[in-house]
Every structure is written in C-alpha cells, then in structure tokens.
C-alpha cells in the first residue's frame, strides 16, 4: 500500500515537473515570436520599389554624367536624411540614360565621377571605373551596378532598388 502511494507520489511529481517545464517552454516560445519577428524584421518586409523622379529631360545634357538624389522606396518617418540615395545618371543619347549605383562594387564606398578624367573613382581602396561603369583598375570585382531608368512625360525617373551587395563570387544582387 505504501509502495503504491509512493509510486503515485513520484508520478505526480513527475507530472508536475513535466508540466512546469512544458509551460515554461511554451511561455518562452510564445514570447519569442514577437522578439524573433523584430530581429528578422528587415527580411520579413516586402521589397517595395518605386519610380522616383530625378529631373526633367532637359536638365541632362547628352554625354554628361550627373549625380542625382532620390528618396528610397519606403523610408521610415524617422529616417531623416538617411532616407536618401544617390545615383550617377549618364545621358548617352536623346532618349537613352544609364543610372549607376553610387556604391563601389568592392566594399560599397561612394564612387565619385571625375568629369575631366571621364572616370569613376573610389576613395577607399582605389577602385576605378570607366564612363560605362566597367572596371578600369583596382579591386572592384564587377562593374558598377545599374538602376532601371525611364523617361516619362519628359521627366527622368529612376527605379529604387536595394543597396547592391556583392556576393562571394563577385556577382551582385542586381536591382530588379
């Protein structure tokens, strides 16, 4: 009789032990959902892309390259000036434009257009690109990334895109 009571007591203790561990695990798991959501938020957001006007057609002369700035696709209200991005816009003919990301494909530093030298130069590790964005010298593994660009009702528009990230093989995540 005593043994039976003892066994029941042990199984009762085991039950409560398992119950306590289970409830603790459940509460931790439920609390973790919004926490993990906050951690992974940048990956859970949809990639919004928008056409942004960067100037009128007549603002850009043929065979010139100009810095244009625009607001990212979906900036937070508290982003301030970090909501802005820049691109180098080249007008190659009456209707053709090429827009290059201002980020070096080596490590993302800001490339600058040297008008007289007809070269893009990176201040960080000496990357150099020709006017068409191809690599001229230095460590960049790939040409400058391009943005989509269109002329719409006599205004020039650039399609926003994620920051180009160079992958291990030197390939790039291209803007859509």
């Amino acid at each position: 009789m005593n043994d039976q009571l003892e066994n029941e007591e042990i199984s009762r203790r085991k039950f409560f032990m398992k119950l306590s561990l289970g409830l603790a695990g459940l509460s931790a798991a439920v609390a973790a959902i919004p926490v993990i959501s906050a951690v992974l938020a940048p990956l859970l957001e949809s990639k919004v892309e928008k056409w942004r006007t960067v100037g009128k057609l007549n603002d850009f002369q043929i065979n010139t390259t100009n810095l244009v700035t625009f607001i990212n696709a979906d900036p937070e209200p508290y982003a301030g000036m970090t909501a802005k991005s820049a691109a180098w816009l080249r007008r190659s003919s009456d209707t053709n434009f090429i827009a290059f990301a201002a980020n070096c494909t080596h490590l993302g530093c800001p490339v600058r257009w040297e008008k007289d030298a007809h070269l893009f130069m990176c201040p960080c590790h000496g990357g150099v690109y020709y006017a068409d964005g191809s690599v001229a010298a230095g460590p960049p593994p790939k040409p400058l990334t391009r943005y989509q660009v269109r002329v719409f009702n006599d205004v020039v528009q650039i399609k926003t895109a994620p920051l180009p990230i160079t992958n291990i093989g030197g390939s790039k995540s291209q803007p859509a």
């Binding site: 940048p42 990212n72 937070e76 970090t82 994620p162």
Partner: peptide, 11 residues
Amino acid sequence: RLLLGGNTIGG
C-alpha cells in the same frame, strides 16, 4: 540586410 535593418541605409 539584417545588419542594415532593411534594403538600404535608413531609420
């Protein structure tokens, strides 16, 4: 993207 907190530098 996780490091930057989004697709671009931002808030």
